[in-house]
Every structure is written in structure tokens, then in C-alpha cells.
């Protein structure tokens, strides 16, 4: 026993070293995306408080360009609203009976929660975004996140007042997307390096697609409604498999310059999940 103690004391440095190395390896490799403690993420209360303090100051930096892009967006939406109103009015004139007077106002399936961004990164291999909304505001893991330009990510870990979002710029997270105007669904992946470029994989070979075509969300999940802009096709590259090809896509949202995002709440989410798991029970 004494020999053992002597041995341990003599080589204590090695034991301490091995202990810390093992501990950090456990942290690194147990870091499965969905089972993570809130305390180990940037959404914990200490880091989010400190970081939001910094955000108070830096939030003013890119205000001018953000304002311009928001104004553009507002103008586009205004035009869309006017057009839709006119269309609805025209349809009502034709089919007055079958369309109730307020039928179009009743059923909103998706609801948006605005959330200020505390931190975000784009230079790592796995990038995350922390926002200042949590369970108290109705945010739940798995909800989709967009900004005014398009797809941003999906909610991962949620605390009472903060949440961590897995960014599109994260090689461990994939998104279901499709070519706008068609039903050809592919997988959006990010392969590192450029925060503006991602790839859409598994598009069948026979699909005709052109440079400048839009990629939008497929709507095959409860996270995102279909048709949210994701990006624009830049090039067509050879995939790993000869039966499919891969599209190089310029992402619509500027993830390096996020100040606030909208978290999408699907009112039917709980219902759809129970249906999907019905057989399993």
C-alpha cells in the first residue's frame, strides 16, 4: 500500500495530466449535438450575461447597413401584401360563397419569436449562435431559426432565458432543402471555410437546374415551413455518388453579421411528433 502511494505521489504529475486529458476528451467526445447540458454551452447564465453586455456596445456597429437591408425587405413585403390583397379581393369577387369573409385570417400555423443575438461565430468547424430568448418565451429545442434574409439554423439547447442555436455553418447539422418550384429535395451541408458557401447534396442527376436558381426549405419537418429562402445556386459540382450531383450554394443570410433572428414556432409540432412516433409506442 505504501509503495503504491509512493508510486502515485512520485508520478503525480502524470496522473494529474492524464486526469485532465481524459476529462477534456470526455467533454469533447460526449458532445453529441442534442444531449448537452446547458451549463457547458454559451447559453449558461454567466457567459450570456457577460456577452450580452458586450453586445449592448457592439450592437450599434453595423446599424446602417442592417437598416438598409431591413428597409429593402419591408418594401418587398409591402408590395407582396398589396398584391396578395388585390388577388384575394379578385378571387372573392369570383367565388364569394366558398371563401368565408375571414377564412384567410384564421389559420396561422407558424408563429415567430423575435430573439436578439448574444454571440455568434463563423470561423469554427462547428459554429453556434446564442440568443436571448428561452423556455420562458416558448422556445423549445428543434425549432427553426431564420433572419430577414433566410435560413439561419435550428435551436439546440434551451435555458430559462437563453438558447443556443446550431448554425447552418456547422458540419454536424444537415437541413432538408429543395429547388424552388420543383419537388426535388436535397440535403444542405456546410463543409467549412467560407461562411457564405454551402452545398446541397443528393439532387438526382436528371434534374435540370441553372445558375442563379433559388434553394428553399422543403417544409418536410416541423422546424421550418416550406419555401424559406436558403440560397442561390452558384455552380454544379460532382458528388461522391454518380447518381446524384451536388450544388454549390451562396447562402442568403449573412451569418457573420447577425443582430436578431426569428425563432419559428409550429403550432402543430406536438401533434405531428406524436403522430410520427405513434407506431413506436
Amino acid at each position: 500500500m505504501r509503495n503504491l502511494l509512493n508510486f502515485i505521489l512520485r508520478y503525480s504529475t502524470w496522473f494529474v495530466f492524464l486526469f485532465y486529458v481524459l476529462l477534456s476528451c470526455v467533454l469533447i467526445f460526449s458532445n453529441s449535438l442534442y444531449r448537452q447540458s446547458i451549463y457547458l454551452t454559451s447559453a449558461n447564465s454567466v457567459s450570456s450575461t457577460l456577452n450580452s453586455g458586450v453586445g449592448e456596445v457592439t450592437g450599434y456597429f453595423a446599424l446602417k447597413s442592417r437598416n438598409a437591408s431591413l428597409e429593402q425587405r419591408v418594401a418587398r413585403l409591402e408590395a407582396e401584401v398589396l398584391n396578395s390583397r388585390r388577388q384575394i379581393a379578385a378571387y372573392r369577387a369570383v367565388l364569394a360563397d366558398s371563401l368565408g369573409t375571414n377564412a384567410d385570417m384564421k389559420s396561422y400555423r407558424f408563429d415567430y419569436i423575435m430573439a436578439p443575438v448574444i454571440t455568434s461565430s463563423t470561423h469554427r468547424k462547428r459554429n453556434y449562435i446564442t440568443v436571448e430568448k428561452g423556455t420562458a418565451d416558448g422556445v423549445r429545442p428543434g425549432m427553426g431559426v431564420v433572419d430577414h434574409n433566410g435560413l439561419v439554423g435550428v435551436v439546440n439547447v434551451v435555458g430559462p432565458h437563453t438558447a443556443r442555436i446550431i448554425s447552418v455553418l456547422n458540419d454536424a447539422q444537415k437541413f432538408s432543402v429543395k429547388l424552388k418550384g420543383t419537388d426535388f429535395v436535397g440535403t444542405l451541408v456546410w463543409k467549412g471555410n467560407d461562411p457564405h458557401v454551402a452545398y446541397v447534396e443528393e439532387i438526382p442527376r436528371h434534374v435540370r437546374c441553372h445558375l442563379g436558381d433559388s434553394i428553399v426549405t422543403s417544409g418536410f419537418s416541423t422546424s421550418f415551413p416550406g419555401g424559406i429562402p436558403v440560397g442561390i445556386v452558384m455552380a454544379q459540382v460532382r458528388g461522391d455518388d454518380d447518381n446524384y450531383f451536388t450544388l454549390k450554394v451562396r447562402l442568403a443570410s449573412d451569418l457573420g453579421n447577425l443582430r436578431s433572428v426569428s425563432i419559428i414556432r409550429d403550432i402543430y409540432a406536438a401533434e405531428l411528433d406524436t403522430l410520427a412516433n405513434y407506431d413506436l409506442k
Partner: peptide, 11 residues
């Protein structure tokens, strides 16, 4: 803890 790199900098 601040930069979402669980364990990497520690190692």
C-alpha cells in the same frame, strides 16, 4: 464555456 468548444481549449 464561452465559445461552445466543449473541452477543446481545456485539452
Amino acid at each position: 464555456l464561452f465559445s461552445d468548444t466543449a473541452g477543446m481549449n481545456a485539452l
